[in-house]
Design a protein around this nucleic acid. Sequence first.
DNA 1: TAAAGTAGTTACCTTTGCGTAACTATCAAA
DNA 2: TTTGATAGTTACGCAAAGGTAACTACTTTA
Lengths: 101, 101
Amino acid sequence: MQRSMGILGTRWKPIIIYTLRDRKARFGQLDALIENISRKVLTSSLKELEEDGIILREEFKELPPRVEYALTEKGKALIPIMCQLAKWNEEYYEEPAALEL
Amino acid sequence: MQRSMGILGTRWKPIIIYTLRDRKARFGQLDALIENISRKVLTSSLKELEEDGIILREEFKELPPRVEYALTEKGKALIPIMCQLAKWNEEYYEEPAALEL
DNA sequence: TAAAGTAGTTACCTTTGCGTAACTATCAAA
DNA sequence: TTTGATAGTTACGCAAAGGTAACTACTTTA
């Protein structure tokens, strides 16, 4: 547990992983999809998650440049956990959907 | 998700919650059960988790003093998530148990 | 020649997380 | 009167996390 938390125990990394649960995404897409994250934190988090073997960075030699991020197997193993966490969040913190009448 | 991570996105809080998954515990017990945590971080984390409605602090008017910490309903809802995380940790980072021959 | 698009980087700064060590309060027991 | 046990608190400081804004590099398109 201690080791995991050394890797995941930040405000943004779980959100990045959650965002990649069902898609690859480019840097700019992640920046747009994740509200309020700064490009700087996104850059450094992606770098660290890659070092820790949780995401994969694929660079296409095109112009303009294209880089895609995706979860590795180790990262994919976190998907159910992140989804449960999102559900917990909704249950306790989000606006309930409009009541049916 | 953002809200949850504002609450849980630290190195120690998930570990504290995980430690309380199957027991109440006193301050000193938590300090002993969780390796390497400092009393200071334990104090402040417990205080914040209580403010966020995840744990309950019960103070007994005895001498020497006794204080017990336990998960609330909202906190208990996190147990399966923390257990999965612990499992993920074991799978990818812990020593595998001795191989059978 | 200038703008536009992509994927960052860099400099600078503030806040938070975390650590260590010493100290507090209370009462009972030695 | 000193020790022991419990549950902290306080002072001090470092490092990591995070934010903002401006800047870079490359090539195509206008």
